[in-house]
């Protein structure tokens, strides 16, 4: 107990400083970080399967829309194709439309579409399609990448791995 009292004050100050520093760190942290901005699709011209120009924003038509990025060399993209195509063929009128954006050579995409019998609209792009995908939230540029945009064109749902039946159910629950 020798020398306890004189030190009590400095000890209290130290403890207080310690707590204050924790408090200050946690108080300033949220201020420094802005909320994530909502992302909207914008006018973006790609080629369709006939080689004609087509604008993404025109295909949106201010309705809910599912956009699926894929490539022919990507196994998980191939796997989800039948599911998306089946959805496209059997969906009711008011459910969102699907469009695919293939980041690949036009010839290969055409072969692939014929082989698998894909009925929903497909747009084709090269490196500019990667830029589009990046601007729509997939910064690591992996495939497949699927987003749901609402009437305003804002992304309300996204997935960067293979689409499963549950995902489509989840999308429909968001409408």
């Amino acid at each position: 107990m020798k020398g306890f009292n004189p030190k009590k004050r400095s000890l209290k100050i130290l403890g207080l400083l310690f707590l204050i520093s924790i408090g200050v760190i946690y108080l300033i942290l949220p201020i420094l970080e802005p909320e994530p901005e909502p992302v909207f699709i914008e006018s973006f011209v790609l080629t369709d399967l006939n080689g004609d120009q087509s604008d993404l924003i025109e295909m949106h038509q201010s309705k809910f829309l599912i956009i699926n990025f894929w490539a022919t060399w990507c196994a998980p993209c191939r796997k989800e194709m039948p599911l998306l195509n089946n959805y496209h063929l059997t969906k009711s009128e008011d459910y969102p439309n699907v469009i695919g954006i293939a980041i690949d050579e036009l010839d290969q995409v055409n072969n692939f579409v014929a082989e698998l019998g894909i009925d929903f609209p497909i747009l084709v792009g090269q490196s500019e399609a990667y830029d589009l995908m990046e601007s729509l939230g997939n910064t690591i540029l992996t495939l497949p990448y699927t987003i749901l945009v609402n009437q305003e064109g804002m992304i309300v749902w996204s997935k960067n791995t293979e689409i499963k039946t549950e995902d489509l159910e989840q999308i429909l629950s968001l409408l």
Partner: peptide, 13 residues
């Protein structure tokens, strides 16, 4: 190189 992940995605070449 070109690779993929088991969670169901691929990286471009």
């Amino acid at each position: 190189s070109q690779g993929c992940a088991d969670i169901g995605l691929c990286y471009p070449p």
